[in-house]
C-alpha cells in the first residue's frame, strides 16, 4: 500500500488552495520544514508570516488577520498549538469565533524519537472542550487534502490534527469528505470499530483479519471529532458493541466523544484503545505504536474480546 504523511499532503494542498484563493495567509513558528508550510512560503512569500518561536503571538496574530477577512492557517507542532498557546486559541480565536485554521502536525506518539515532551496525546481533548471549535483528524493524505478544502470554505475556527510519519493511503480521489460526517469503510454486524486519524488504516487491517475468524466488524473513519456524527454512532451501536481506536489519550478524545453519544442514546458495551493515561517516550513511530498497543494485531484481539463479551452477555 502506498504511503504518505498527512503533513506532506497538508503542505501540498495548502499551495493548491493558495493558487485558488488569495485571502489565504499562513503563519508559522519556525517549523516550516517540518510542518511543510515551507511549500506555501516558497510559492507565496508575501502571504506567509514567519512568527519565530512564539506560538502564543502566532495565534493572536492569526486572529487579527482573520478580523480583516483573511483565512489564516497557523501551523506548528500539536503540543505547542494546543498546549503552549491554549489560552490564545481559546480567547483570541475561539471566543470571537474567528476564521483561523490551526493545522498542527506531529500529533501523538508518532512524533517518535523526540520523546514524550513533544508527543501531544491530549490535544483532541483540549480542543474539543472549547466552544465554537471544530476538530478534524484526517486518516490519510487524500482525506487531509479534502479536509483542508472543506475547512477553507467553513467559516470559523478549526483544529486540524496531522501526523509526522508516512501512513497508508486508504482513499482514492473520489472520496467524499464532509465536516461532521463519518465514513463507513466496511459493513459488519458483530461489532463496530470507530477509529480516527492514522489508526483508521490498522483498524481496517484488523477487520480483514477478523473476517477470517468469522467476525464481521463494521469499520468507521470518524475524521470529525467535533461536531461528532451522532447518526453514525447510533448505527454503530446497533451492532451491539463499539471499539474506539485513537493515537491519543483514552481520556477526553475520540473514545470519550463517542461514549458521550452512546450512553445517552443507545448504551452498548464499549472498549477504548489509545494511550492509557501515561506520557509517550522516545522510539521510532512503529516501535511506539507497538509498545502502546496500537497495532492492527492488538485491535483484532480487543475486537474479538469485545464481540465475545457482547454475545455472552
Amino acid at each position: 500500500m502506498q504511503k504518505k504523511a498527512t503533513r506532506d499532503a497538508y503542505g501540498e494542498a495548502l499551495v493548491e488552495l493558495g493558487h485558488e484563493f488569495d485571502n489565504i495567509v499562513v503563519l508559522e513558528a519556525d517549523l516550516s520544514k517540518s510542518t511543510k508550510t515551507e511549500l506555501f512560503a516558497k510559492e507565496f512569500p508575501e502571504r506567509f508570516f514567519q512568527m519565530g518561536i512564539a506560538e502564543q503571538d502566532m495565534m493572536g496574530t492569526a486572529a487579527g488577520l482573520a478580523t480583516c477577512n483573511k483565512v489564516a492557517f497557523a501551523s506548528t507542532f500539536a503540543i505547542f498549538a494546543t498546549g503552549r498557546a491554549f489560552e490564545q486559541v481559546r480567547n483570541s480565536i475561539a471566543y470571537p469565533s474567528l476564521n483561523v485554521k490551526i493545522c498542527a502536525t506531529h500529533a501523538g506518539l508518532t512524533v517518535g524519537e523526540d520523546g514524550g515532551s513533544h508527543q501531544a496525546i491530549e490535544d483532541i481533548a483540549i480542543m474539543r472542550a472549547i466552544p465554537n471549535m471544530t476538530v478534524i483528524v484526517p486518516a490519510d493524505a487524500t482525506e487531509t487534502a479534502k479536509a483542508l478544502r472543506a475547512i477553507y470554505h467553513y467559516d470559523g475556527p478549526v483544529y486540524l490534527r496531522l501526523g509526522r510519519p508516512a501512513v497508508p493511503i486508504i482513499y482514492d480521489e473520489n472520496m467524499n469528505f464532509q465536516i461532521g460526517k463519518a465514513n463507513k469503510l466496511q459493513e459488519g454486524h458483530d461489532l463496530a470499530i470507530i477509529a480516527t486519524g492514522i489508526m483508521v488504516a490498522p483498524a481496517m487491517e484488523a477487520a480483514e483479519a477478523l473476517k477470517k475468524e468469522g467476525i464481521l466488524a463494521q469499520v468507521w473513519d470518524m475524521a470529525t471529532i467535533k461536531p461528532i456524527d451522532k447518526e453514525a454512532i447510533r448505527e454503530a451501536a446497533k451492532t451491539g458493541a463499539i471499539l474506539t481506536v485513537e493515537e491519543h489519550s483514552i481520556i477526553g478524545g475520540l473514545g470519550s466523544a463517542v461514549a458521550e453519544v452512546v450512553v445517552e442514546n443507545s448504551p452498548v458495551p464499549m472498549q477504548f484503545m489509545g494511550v492509557e493515561d501515561r506520557f509517550g517516550q522516545s522510539g521510532t513511530p512503529d516501535e511506539l505504536l507497538k509498545a502502546y498497543g496500537l497495532t492492527a494485531e492488538n485491535i483484532a484481539i480487543k475486537a474479538k474480546e469485545l464481540a465475545n463479551k457482547k454475545s455472552s452477555s
Binding site: M58, M59, G60, T61, A63, G64, L65, C68
Partner: peptide, 8 residues
C-alpha cells in the same frame, strides 16, 4: 498580537 495581525 491581534493588533499586529490587523496591521499586517
Amino acid at each position: 498580537s491581534i493588533a499586529n495581525g490587523m496591521a499586517l
